[in-house]
Design a protein around this nucleic acid. Structure first.
Lengths: 330, 330
DNA sequence: AATCCTTGGGAGATCGATTTCCGACATGCT
DNA sequence: AGCATGTCGGAAATCGATCTCCCAAGGATT
């Protein structure tokens, strides 16, 4: 009981493999409607499904694209992958998702695995702005690659990202308009382009005296560490801008435990607008990425001729989502 | 500048394709060390990477396994996929993850896509105990399939799951030992085997008078709805067992807003022990699945001859993780 | 010295679908 | 009627790697 092949369908329909292929693969070539019907019928009856490897070998294309994200443990990247999946599926393709475990070496490995003939093209959310470049450049020389949400130096390809500076400005402006003027930043993952840009934008806005707490990566644990440091300085600040939602969540929880009222004493903002924010008490103000539009643009670039993927950064505008964590203190 | 083929490597090394293949694919056949060295060198110099489709077509195996989970929006399934990925990678394979959007129809589609020659075998966490069966049975007739975490009726294959009844008993016993006797259950997703088993175990333990709040699915929003109902009944109960962490999180947040102290007035437990629990205030008591052991067993079954995958359910023992959400009320 | 193994390289078949190319037939035009 | 034109089915080449044979060379055995 082995799987039916195209030949089996063709024989059952009384036609040649060529005709069967034309009907089933939809080649731009007319086939007698009666024959087509017989082929369709036979294929359906036998439960025929084209062998993916054979088709890929012959056509040189797999109908699959991949995306490598830094870590699926961060719900933001799950949302991001989902946004891309929507558009890929709408275009008739399949998306496979890989996790780089926040490690450029594993990232390079995942890229290589996917490019070993499994995908037609690749989206990468680079782990590191400095270290991810070479592996991506190699990949981009073999297949279309588009960076998403973050860029990497020397990648040799285009990046579709958020305008992080504008996002930080939105947050700081919002806080100042609600009467907060002693704002601190909790930033993580300065190795990534997004982390670095957010930090840079904040220090530019606030000058050298800016209060910043820097952490190695975007985890909830790091957020709690930050919480302790903020608690120590509670009297010198009245608002904290976090570089990621997971940081904000950890921070708010620590402030709670230390009985520092949010937003009563300190206002807190997140970044990325992941779903968990709404669950929190208080719900946390954040920045929403236009993920769907970004995904659409990225897919267009991936399918465009390579000359349109020159190394550069395209930026999309963020949107501020105000929630209770930044209500006026009064 | 097209990709180098095996033939190119063979010519560069001055040997035949057969020899080059034997060296690079590691066939159990001796090759002169000198020739082997020349082949390796040539392959490295040309940056040769075997064409995945061609190899898959010839060998009939892809080195890839898939897993279809109900939804990646639930962090538990992300953890689960990660546990499987660890073991698959350790065995030299690749894992691709698909999201069924909590819909049996999409689930069936994802299964079909993956089985169209992309994977050697498949893990499925079925969306529905009643409706997922047929699609899985079809799949299992074509390739090895192992169910994970949940089972489905008529699937025709083995399932590696948690002993949900034991887990509910652990939770209820723990609550009773800490002096809580008016326990309610918030359950969701009764269409899934895990949801149904948890509900059944609870009603069996508590009798017909058991207080239960049933919700259609495992989302945080559902958790909040449950919260409102529990708040209404706050004086009749002193503990709530939630059928999922996401439910517990939404519930605790609602109780907070309604100024019902947790665990002061009501103790709350989760299920699945996802990372977000530790972030909450208070951290939430939960049930930990032995995911790594389960993944290992599931992979073994996937690679075993099909006669070892007769339809049945293998159950692993849960572990109770006590946190502050169930501290004694005093 | 003749024969038998053993070892290891190479020619060619093969996996299953797509696609080029050719030929058969029908139709339209002069 | 004769020839050009167009339509459409089928035979066979093709994608790239693997693997089965077959064969040559060298050593061991009698």
């Amino acid at each position: 009981m082995t799987a039916p092949r195209l030949l089996d369908v063709a024989e059952a329909a009384g036609v040649s493999r060529a005709t069967a292929s034309r009907v089933l693969a939809g080649t731009p070539r007319n086939v007698d409607p009666e024959l087509a019907r017989r082929v369709e019928e036979a294929a359906h009856r036998l439960g025929y499904q084209a062998n993916h490897s054979a088709r890929a070998l012959r056509t040189g294309t797999t109908g699959t694209v991949g995306v490598v994200v830094p870590s699926l443990a961060n719900p933001y990247f799950v949302q991001l992958a989902d946004a891309i999946a929507q558009h890929v599926r709408a275009a008739g393709g399949t998306l496979v998702v890989s996790d780089a475990a926040n490690d450029p070496a594993i990232e390079a490995e995942q890229i290589d695995t996917l490019l070993g003939g499994r995908v037609d093209g690749l989206f990468v959310v680079p782990v590191s702005a400095g270290e991810s470049g070479p592996a991506i450049r190699n990949a981009a020389a073999r297949r279309p690659v588009v960076l998403f949400d973050r860029w990497a130096e020397g990648s040799g390809t285009v990046a579709v990202t958020l305008d992080n500076a504008a996002a930080v400005r939105l947050l700081v402006d919002h806080l100042e308009q609600t009467g907060r003027h002693r704002i601190a930043l909790v930033a993580a993952d300065q190795a990534s382009s997004s982390g670095a840009e957010r930090l840079a934008a904040f220090t530019e806005l606030q000058g050298d005296g800016a209060t910043t707490v820097l952490l190695p990566n975007f985890t909830t644990d790091a957020g709690r560490t930050a919480g302790r440091r903020i608690v120590e300085q509670r009297d010198r600040i009245d608002a904290v801008v976090c570089g990621a939602d997971v940081l904000a969540v950890g921070l708010v929880s620590t402030l709670h435990r230390s009985s520092v009222p949010v937003p009563g004493k300190i206002a807190v903002t997140g970044f990325d607008d992941t779903e968990i924010l709404e669950l929190f008490d208080p719900p946390i103000t954040s920045i929403r990425h236009p993920l769907s539009a970004m995904a659409e643009r990225a897919l267009t670039l991936l399918q465009a001729p390579s000359r349109e993927r020159t190394e550069r950064v395209e930026r999309f505008q963020p949107q501020l989502v105000v929630r209770a964590s930044t209500d006026t203190g009064s």
